[in-house]
Design a protein around this nucleic acid. Structure first.
Lengths: 219, 219, 219, 219
DNA sequence: GATGAATGAGGCTTCATTCAT
DNA sequence: TATGAATGAAGCCTCATTCAT
């Protein structure tokens, strides 16, 4: 609020937003180029020079806008993570049966993952290498898990889920299930199929919580 | 050196077992030293020189026994992975209730994970960086998932689990749940507590499969 | 840029005086800002960007007024050196005893040095790095030494100083004494005290030349 | 004394002495090459690559033995400075007249300076750029000044120098005189001549302290 | 086998200077 | 004039790997 401080509420601001049109364009070029290069070579094997070459700018131009590969990568995955968080929030809290909402959330998660599969793989890679990136990854996870936890609590209030289930532990476990399944499928390449995946995950998720659900009615 | 590349078939032959007494000792020293260093600095940040220094041998000696950091790391995690595979196999296929066997398997998995938490974290890191290490990691996963898949099939034959559940998908999902929960707990440091973790995972696992289970009776 | 090279004849023409009001203001801002930055960071560690930032002008603006850091620095120390030269000239050639005039000159030199101690330190630094700056430094030195030489010659004409003393050598030696003492005191920080310093230097200076002098009568 | 600590009593030890013959040779080559390059290009303009090229070793080899240009330079001037300190100590404290001893010390200082004139110039340059080098330079100065201070005290005890002269201030002033004269002569290139320089400095030095001295008897 | 010195490709970063607007 | 983005040459440093002893 007071001039120079953190505007975003999260990670320390990168170099300030460029003032000129041209600057904004160059910065955007770098981010786009970086996404392409990261997807192609992975986080580790991407060189600053690869990015500037792809963006068709001089090597030094990189440092006009970013301090390090980390910082640029954070920029690249920033929107991605926002997608996931938005995805989690977009699931209506009311209306439809709980099972239908869980199915919708699971499918949404898997589809978002699939849309960004390449980059998600890189994100997983970068997250183990860089603490700041890990934070970003964990924020996305937390949004996803927290949403599940809240849902479980609400279902317990409505007597739809048994009280002996701990919402925090259960949300972590079930969130892990979906998240890791997506990784195994879409990054590691285990040959699953979308509808079957959504169906199984939702089935297990609901049954685990003791929620009634009509058996599979395939699309 | 290479990040995502070289997915090629698992273990290339390691350097041959040394012939002399002295050679075997040196090799063992390197492996032990490497484990300590990897646990302390992670995979990425470990230098060949760190390992030889810790092992108190000359830098060049490393190459008498190993071709690369990858190869040595594979050696280091080899026994670890055997642990997990053995763990999976040690769960009796018969006797006790299915729920009891699932609980035992889950607890066994979490404990094995906890015993080796530092190194498991490094293994996850190395797996995203090196194709061969990834293969090792996936083998451990496969042992774990395959065991679950077999169990589910058997329970279906015994009419204890509904047929509309796909054993392959379900085993992957539930295996992911436990595996990822362990990672979040023991590597990322989310503050869970053992009994509660085992209880929740087992509860969810059984309910997801539709298995009857008496509520928690604490140890 | 070059260290010992380019000893070439002193001042190349600086950029012409700006034509507009605004231009003169900007140029002055840069000089003031540069003095502050040089004093804070030294010559070597000052970047063009530091100066423009301090002056609150765009980076490129620097090159509207100066060709290089050297040139700007010369501008900055220009007035300083004039001070020293003026100082040397302001000592009356006649009146008072020779000893009193020497004391006055020494005190004047030390005080001028102290007034500008920070920048004098930077000047010594820049002088070893840049031939043009060295020329400036040497001009100041020459003014100081030449004045001493002339004085000695005059005292020899008046039979107050022995003929076997070479005025050129002696002026260089005694000038060095005062000049270096000032550096050691005011730049390197050796803990001297003003009156004692002036007294000792003057005492030694006069005795060295064989000038009569009543012992110290403090101000 | 206890293994790894500082052996020299002064600056933190460089990389440990090489173990093998070959290593010692290479290290020595680098130091010799560095001296040549420093003398030719000055401190600032010497690149690591210049030194390794002159020494005919690979670039990386530099870092086997030194951490930085600073560290290597310290090594290069180490012996030089020892020379000066030794020089100061070699002047006999007894025998001959005080004036004769002062003459001997001054001549010794100027000759040592001249023998190493190129490197002394570089040392003055490096001293303003690097704090550690400055320390080395100051140690040499202190040895020189301290020796003068002790001498003055002794002469005062013997009633050969007046008590109203402060030995600390006087030693600094007269030490500065000789030291700076040497610099102006041998580094800046002011055209002095040895015997005349020694004669004048000694004459002024002695007279400044009030010491009797027979007039110049040229060599 | 063991040693430790030597190698050099590879990547990073800085910053004086230019230039289009 | 002023701006601030773009440039790229220049140096630095690391460390896996090789090799002579």
């Amino acid at each position: 609020m007071t001039g120079q401080s953190d505007e975003s509420g999260a990670h320390r601001a990168a170099s300030p937003e460029p003032v000129t049109q041209r600057g904004r364009r160059t910065r955007a070029q770098l981010i786009e180029a970086a996404r392409r290069v990261f997807e192609e070579k992975g986080y580790m094997d991407t060189r600053i020079g690869d990015i500037t070459e792809e963006a068709a700018v001089a090597h030094g131009t990189f440092y006009t806008y970013f301090e390090s590969k980390h910082e640029l990568f954070r920029e690249v995955v920033g929107t991605l993570v926002q997608d996931f968080i938005g995805q989690a929030r977009s699931v209506p809290k009311l209306g439809h049966s709980p099972a239908a909402r869980i199915e919708r959330a699971n499918r949404g998660y898997l589809l978002a993952y699939r849309r960004n599969a390449r980059l998600m793989g890189v994100l997983e890679q970068a997250a183990v290498l860089d603490g700041d990136v890990r934070q970003i990854r964990l924020e996305a996870r937390h949004a996803w898990v927290k949403r599940a936890e809240d849902m479980i609590r609400r279902l317990q209030e409505d007597r739809l889920v048994a009280d002996h289930i701990d919402p925090y532990y259960a949300a972590n476990a079930l969130g892990s299930m979906v998240d890791r399944f997506a990784y195994v499928w879409l990054v590691l390449g285990e040959p699953f199929e979308e509808d079957q995946a959504v169906e199984t995950l939702t089935q297990l998720y609901c049954a685990a919580l003791g929620l009634e659900r009509e058996p599979h009615s395939p699309a």
